[in-house]
Design a protein around this nucleic acid. Structure first.
Lengths: 137, 137
DNA sequence: TTAATCTGTAATGTTTAGTATTACAGTGCA
DNA sequence: TGCACTGTAATACTAAACATTACAGATTAA
């Protein structure tokens, strides 16, 4: 699982808890324990998809742009990690019936697996993640 | 997705197509396009779980030990890759409510995702993979 | 009983992917 | 004008994946 994915969830959850002021990449990076540049990279993806707004300059930062229950974990997965489940198939031997066909077979199976997982992830919105985080236990 | 997983599937499929003679790690590695030592490592795992037999020495190699429909892709996943979906959470800030709780929340969500995917993978046995490979298209 | 052919596994080296760091242009505020 | 941000590219570092080497032990066949 790509860790940009977890970073994106972490960031959005952070923003969700600061609904009335902008948060800087520095503040988020301190919460997540990674470098601010990474936060900006991940958030620039989320911005492109309209989940957040950003503002440059003094007093700038990031802000959640939608309702918390409009964004679910499958949406975020698709943006940050789609295809992460796909097998990394080394060049296999085309002379061999197994080598020649395995990649195709596995790709289609793993695509199905990803879609299947998607249905599960759709069940979690940022709102629910925020609630779980608040519960502390 | 751990590529030991795809290697295990590849190897088992290969063995399934050679039911009446032993296959060497060299032959399998040539089909899969990886180093024979890796094949032996992965297959030693599968052997521990009783999916295959092996024999050392001249004329030795590996052999499928069960019926093709007794082994499904979830079984293999559990052996080679369980936990691969778990997020790699960097140490986050315990002072922050998000940092302090995110790992716990994500672990439980991703555990569910893995189980959910498991139900899908259970639907594919090696027999079905072999059939798909034979179909060639 | 010796040589050849395998597995099993540890140790080491190499490559690649992930991540951090640095640098700096552009934007907006005070 | 100076400061505090985002945005992004370039570079450097680190860790994980993978290949390679090495060799002990098992098995067969000459």
């Amino acid at each position: 699982m790509n860790s940009d994915y977890t970073l994106a969830i972490h960031s959005l959850t952070y923003l969700a808890l600061q609904p009335d002021r902008m948060s800087t990449s520095d503040a988020i990076s301190e919460s997540a324990g990674v470098h601010p540049v990474r936060i900006r990279k991940v958030l620039s993806l989320l911005k492109k998809h309209g989940f957040i707004k950003s503002k440059e300059g003094t007093g700038g930062g990031f802000l959640f742009a939608l309702d918390l229950s409009e964004v679910n974990l499958w949406d975020i997965y698709k943006i940050t990690s789609e295809g992460a489940l796909q097998p990394k198939c080394p060049e296999s031997n085309e002379q061999c019936i197994v080598g020649a066909n395995m990649q195709r077979v596995l790709c289609s199976i793993f695509l199905g697996a990803e879609e299947h997982m998607g249905e599960y992830l759709m069940g979690y919105t940022i709102k629910e993640v925020v609630d779980l985080v608040k519960k502390r236990l």
